[in-house]
């Protein structure tokens, strides 16, 4: 019995706290390119100080937050009607529609992002189609722009938006909308006053589930974005693999974690509140 209770704590200790302590130790050390591993341990905050003083890192943070926020908003605007339509579909058809939403997960994430490269390339399928159909004679290239990064994030994380929204919309008692209509609310007014506020927990959950991973996203900006799109996940990668600066990369990782702890805590609270309400 005790073992069962202890297991999650052991797990957290071995696979989270211990690595976290290691990363923190490295972050407080100094770069030592000639030793193995290339770290000289110490207790210096200069790596952190650099992150907050160097314009490059500040810009990367802000770009990450901005791209994540805009992509989250786009995913919400796209995901809400989808979730609404699924929740209002005939009950027998809902499982099929939900399966279609999660169907992309059956293919590796990386491969799907590579597929987008094939679509958005200068001579990719999208431009071939645009030229062939004559809609645009000389289309520019989406690949390598921030647009492509937004597109990739919305595409990759849309299911995380749709599923929690569906869960709240599906639970919504239809008789509440009938009551609103009965009291004189037009369909749109009923949506604004009843459906929207009652689906707020789903909106918050969906937005956090998209926003949190999108801030630290590395693969999508690396493959779809250009050199101009500097996101913090990509900076981390470059510091570690290209520059071999383990301590600085570790400091970036720790800052990312601290930055996202706020939204994660918010998400946890929201979930706990939902559980309370149901009991």
């Amino acid at each position: 019995m005790r073992l069962v209770i202890a297991l999650p704590f052991v797990w957290l200790g071995v696979f989270f706290l211990l690595p976290f302590a290691l990363v923190l130790a490295i972050a407080l050390g100094a770069n030592a390119p000639d030793s193995v591993p290339p770290v000289e341990l110490g207790l210096s905050p200069k790596n952190f100080a650099l992150l907050f003083t160097d314009d490059l890192y500040l810009a990367a943070w802000l770009t990450s937050l901005r791209i994540a926020a805009v992509s989250t908003l786009a995913a919400l605007l796209l995901g809400y009607p989808m979730a609404y339509a699924i929740a209002r579909a005939a009950p027998a058809r809902r499982p099929l529609l939900l399966m279609l939403v999660v169907l992309p997960f059956w293919t590796s994430f990386l491969i799907r992002i590579y597929a987008w490269m094939g679509l958005l390339d200068e001579n990719g399928l999208l431009n071939q189609f645009l030229r062939w159909s004559g809609i645009v004679a000389d289309p520019g290239t989406l690949l390598g722009t921030e647009w492509a990064v937004h597109l990739g994030i919305v595409y990759a994380y849309l299911p995380f938006m749709v599923l929690p929204l569906y869960a709240t919309l599906e639970k919504l008692d239809v008789s509440l909308l009938e009551a609103a209509a009965d009291l004189g609310a037009r369909p749109f007014a009923a949506f604004l006053t009843i459906t929207l506020p009652l689906s707020l927990p789903g909106i918050v959950a969906g937005c956090l589930l998209v926003f949190i991973p999108a801030v630290g996203e590395f693969v999508i900006p690396d493959l779809l974005g250009g050199t101009g799109t500097l996101m913090i996940g990509k900076v981390l990668w470059d510091e570690f693999f290209t520059n071999g600066d383990w301590p600085l990369a570790s400091a970036v990782a720790i800052c990312l974690l601290v930055l996202l702890a706020g939204p994660i805590a918010l998400f946890q609270r929201q979930q706990a509140k939902g559980l309370e309400r149901r009991t």
Binding site: L176, A180, G184, R186
Partner: peptide
């Protein structure tokens, strides 16, 4: 449509707006 009828209804479940 219901929102234009001079009729109001009390629902069996009451359908009160919980928020």
């Amino acid at each position: 449509p219901p929102h234009l009828r001079p009729v109001n209804m009390m629902f069996q479940s009451y359908a009160l707006f919980p928020h």
